[in-house]
Design a binder for these strands. Structure first.
Length: 825
RNA sequence: GGGCAAGUGGCGGAACUGGCAGACGCGCUGGACUUAGAAUCCAGUGGGGCGACCCGUCAGAGUUCGAGUCUCUGCUUGCCCACCA
């Protein structure tokens, strides 16, 4: 009687290998090695509580990539950590009366367990958590260096205020005028806040996008648009009868003679002097208009409201035409861009036209399309370039030339200059929240704003009940009474440099050692969601350039060489969310289907950049695959003895002529899977869905071969190679099969199967014969068949002859080993 | 409104550089095995036609010996940005 198969007990196998890997430190990465380095990283998670299969897609992909590269001979660094400061912890603390630190610690404990449960190969000796003093101490240290270099500063500015989260938000955190986290409409407030001068790096952040050829084009374009560089002219309109000037920025100085009004934001400083100069009732109207807009966000002012305005009663003087144009205060001019004032040219700007029509302001056309000699009454603003009219001695010029000439003229008069403006604004990092890195600044009655000296770092976050005593301190400079900064930092501060801390996580003298950065940076492959395109990824680039300028990192001044955005995971077409109750958890999936099956499914269901759809049916195919893999290898458990891999391969290669067709198919299937895995990795396309399909084909071939040629060397070859081939994707079963077939070391330390071109090459090809582009015959032919031989074969085919119908072959196209097209007439 | 990406069987997808459309899987149908089911294995599965064949990759045009792939026009869906002067 056959001894009963034990079967494939995935739960037992997965648990067994996870604890053995951990015990043996299999995934520890040495800092020095003979092998070339490779730094693979996924965006670190926020410890929100539980992981679902959406997270798993990200970490599975990163893990497969890291494992592939390790098996291709690299010394791979693959770390993991926790982005642990932030609002959810604080909100949970308020809601349930727990300590945010305890809440966070508990979540980290659970999520670390789940990430390990996913069979990932992280080097946990490098784990970081950004809420630990050992980490945020260096946040403070880096803040102080930015401060020293004038890149961190405090100023009063209109800021985005989220009334629900009770804190300010960075510009990048306002999505459609709403808080990125709670989706409430943000308000505008005038507050004194800390900013990082990211605009000082605007040009480099923009220009260096060209260097990032390993990034998705889409992401680069979005960053380009976010930085929003525009070139133009800044010049001033004197105010008639007042000793005041209003500076404006325009990209269309060629339309200067068409300016019929001046529009200013209610916050513009000139408004105050105007208020003093105009009659009392008009001043009151202006003041109440300004007041009505005070707390309105940019979105509300510009998108949700109609264009409104009040005439100030004052006039500005066009510096070239000397025309008097009325000054209006409007809601549609942004206070924070281009100086908060705009020259209104209704004929050549849609917004100005809209405003002019509503308020009866004149419309003067000064640019006409080149081919139309006389201006027609305008229906829409003519916003393209053209030829100037009614513009004194600039008339007749092209827009382009006029822009140069006008800029020169204004510059010559000392009235203006070429200028560049950015949409990018300085990064507001103050948060009026408890659970974050304290900003290391104290305010002293005598000395004013004083940075905390390095040797007093970290400024420890106090327990929540002790905040008041924390705030009272003494001045580090004069020893007098002082008060600490009560704001904490935006959590994006921590995540802008964490990839450097992984390199040297226990260093207590510096955030990282320069030589570690020299060795490991930059990150060879970064994987994460596209939602961070203008947040984390832009901030990190800014920080890294600052570090580079300080000499703390060397080589490239870009942190992330290659970037990959994985798509999200839906459940039956819907977004997974707790409120829908459709979240597919890691624990339940591990229990029901097994981790290897989950990993295979996530990589197989879609190319990784696409949105994938989780269905409970879908994963059954991968469970089946694993069972078939097991059954295909099981009969050989006691018969496969470890021997040098090359010899088996050489034996087969030498015996090519003697192999049966089935054997060749099997050997080809092994090599086709290997080729796919290697190609998808080095091309960084990561379409492992096609690789896993090749593994399906291999197992199909093995199943078919099991009966026909159980003792063939080709079967043994396949059984020997299959665990290696599947190891990056299904690491547990790979390890178990490897052990069962007599190996004593980990399969994950093996070199990946090197695709053998000779084994891949087909000896016989199918020659497709077309007549006038339609397939009329498929003829088996030896590989390397010549054009003349192919022609002869084709003309010998009866169906081809029928379709030629005795017509003359005018020409033919031959594609080697593939296709012959006969063109007949 | 602007920008970008994508539309292929009942479903997810494959075909990367123009050369056999639908690999692989899910589902479905039939068969084997089973008292029965589950599991497994085998066969089939784009549409039409008895058939040789014909039609077929969102729609329409074009380039080409040959188009899912390239060009143009339109439609649909998704994502991002939306008064930045």
């Amino acid at each position: 009687m056959l001894h009963m198969a034990e079967g494939f007990d995935f739960a037992a196998i997965e648990g067994k290998w996870q604890s053995r890997w951990e015990r043996e430190g299999l995934y520890r990465t040495p800092d020095s090695s003979d092998k070339p380095k490779y730094y693979a990283m996924e965006m670190l998670p926020y410890p929100s509580g539980d992981l679902h299969v959406g997270h798993a897609k990200n970490y599975t992909l990163g893990d497969a990539v890291a494992r592939m590269l390790r098996m291709l001979g690299y010394n791979v660094l693959h770390p993991m950590g926790w982005d642990a400061f932030g609002l959810p912890a604080e909100n949970a603390a308020i809601a349930h009366g727990v300590d945010p630190a305890a809440w966070t610690a508990e979540n980290i404990l659970n999520m670390r367990r789940q990430i390990k449960l996913m069979g990932t190969g992280y080097d946990w000796s490098r784990e970081i958590a950004t809420n630990e003093p050992e980490y945020y101490r260096w946040n403070q240290w880096l803040f102080l260096r930015l401060y020293e270099h004038g890149l961190a500063y405090k100023r009063e500015a209109p800021v985005n205020w989220c009334p629900f989260d009770q804190t300010v938000l960075a510009n990048e955190q306002v999505i459609d005028g709403r808080c990125w986290r709670c989706e409430n409409l943000v308000e505008r407030r005038l507050l004194s806040q800390w900013f990082l001068r990211i605009t000082a790096y605007a040009d480099r952040l923009l220009d260096d996008l060209d260097k990032l050829t390993g990034w998705p084009e889409r992401t680069r374009t979005m960053q380009r648009n976010w930085i929003g560089r525009s070139e133009g002219v800044e010049f001033a309109f004197p105010v008639d009868g007042l000793d005041a000037k209003v500076a404006v920025f325009t990209t269309r100085i060629d339309t200067l003679f068409g300016a019929t009004f001046l529009a200013v934001a209610p916050e513009h400083p000139v408004v105050e002097s105007l208020l003093r100069a105009v009659p009392r009732d008009r001043a009151a109207a202006i003041a109440s208009f300004a007041e009505s807009l005070k707390s309105k966000s940019e979105l509300e002012r510009t998108s949700l409201m109609e264009k409104q305005g009040v005439f100030t009663g004052a006039y500005a003087i066009n510096p070239l035409s000397h025309e008097r144009i009325p000054i209006w205060i409007t809601n549609y001019v942004l206070a924070e861009y281009g100086g908060g004032a705009v020259m209104g040219v209704p004929a050549h700007d849609e917004r100005d036209l809209d405003f002019a029509r509503k308020h009866g302001l004149p419309i003067v056309q000064v640019v006409v399309p080149s081919r139309e000699p006389s201006p027609e009454p305008l229906e829409r603003a003519f916003v393209e370039d053209g030829r100037l009219i009614a513009s004194e001695d600039f008339s007749g010029m092209s827009s382009r030339r006029a822009r140069e000439s006008l800029a020169q003229r204004l510059a010559g008069m000392g009235a203006g200059a070429q200028s560049v403006n950015y949409k990018l604004r300085d990064w507001l990092i103050s948060r009026q929240r408890y659970w974050g890195t304290p900003i290391p600044i104290v305010y002293c009655v005598g000395c004013g704003e004083v940075p905390v000296p390095d040797d007093q770092l970290p400024v420890l976050l106090p327990p929540r009940s002790r905040v008041e005593e924390f705030l009272q301190t003494t001045c580090p400079r004069c020893g007098g009474p002082a008060r600490r900064e009560s704001d904490t930092m935006d959590t994006f501060f921590e995540s802008s440099w964490y990839y450097l801390r992984y390199l040297d996580p226990h260093n207590d003298r510096a955030p990282w050692a320069v030589e570690r950065a020299r060795h490991w940076m930059n990150v060879d492959q970064y994987i994460g969601g596209s939602e961070h395109t203008v947040l984390h990824l832009l901030y990190s680039r800014f920080f890294y350039k600052f570090f580079h300028d300080r000499g703390w990192v060397s080589g490239s001044d870009e942190p992330f060489q290659n970037l990959f955005h994985q798509g999200m995971v839906l459940r039956d077409g819907d977004k997974m969310s707790k409120s829908r109750g459709n979240v597919v958890g890691i624990d339940e999936t591990a229990e029901r289907s097994g981790i290897d099956a989950m990993r295979l499914f996530l990589l197989y269901v879609t190319p990784p950049e696409e949105t994938s759809n989780w269905t409970d049916d879908g994963i059954t195919g991968r469970v089946r695959l694993l069972n078939r893999v097991w059954r295909a290898c099981e009969p050989y458990f006691d018969r496969c003895h470890p021997e040098p891999l090359d010899s088996a391969q050489d034996k087969l290669r030498g015996a090519h002529g003697a192999e049966s067709k089935d054997e060749k198919t099997l050997i080809r299937a092994v090599n086709a899977a290997a080729k796919s895995a290697v190609d998808e990795t080095i091309s960084r396309r990561f379409h492992y869905n096609t690789t896993i399909a090749k593994l399906d084909e291999l197992v199909n071939a093995m199943t078919a071969g099991a009966a026909a040629m159980p003792d063939s060397p080709a079967m043994r070859y396949a059984v020997e190679k299959l665990p290696i081939l599947i190891a990056p994707f299904a690491p547990h079963i790979a390890e178990e099969l490897w052990e069962r077939s007599g190996h004593t070391t980990s399969v994950h330390l093996e070199r990946y199967v090197e695709p053998d071109e000779a084994a891949l090459a087909a000896e016989e090809i199918t020659l497709v014969v077309q007549v006038n582009g339609k397939v009329r015959a498929r003829i088996a032919a030896p590989a390397g068949v010549t054009e003349n031989q192919a022609l002869a074969l084709a003309l010998d085919d009866s169906n081809v002859r029928i379709h030629l119908g005795g017509k003359e072959i005018r020409k033919h196209i031959y594609v080697q080993d593939k296709l012959l097209n006969l063109v007949a007439a």
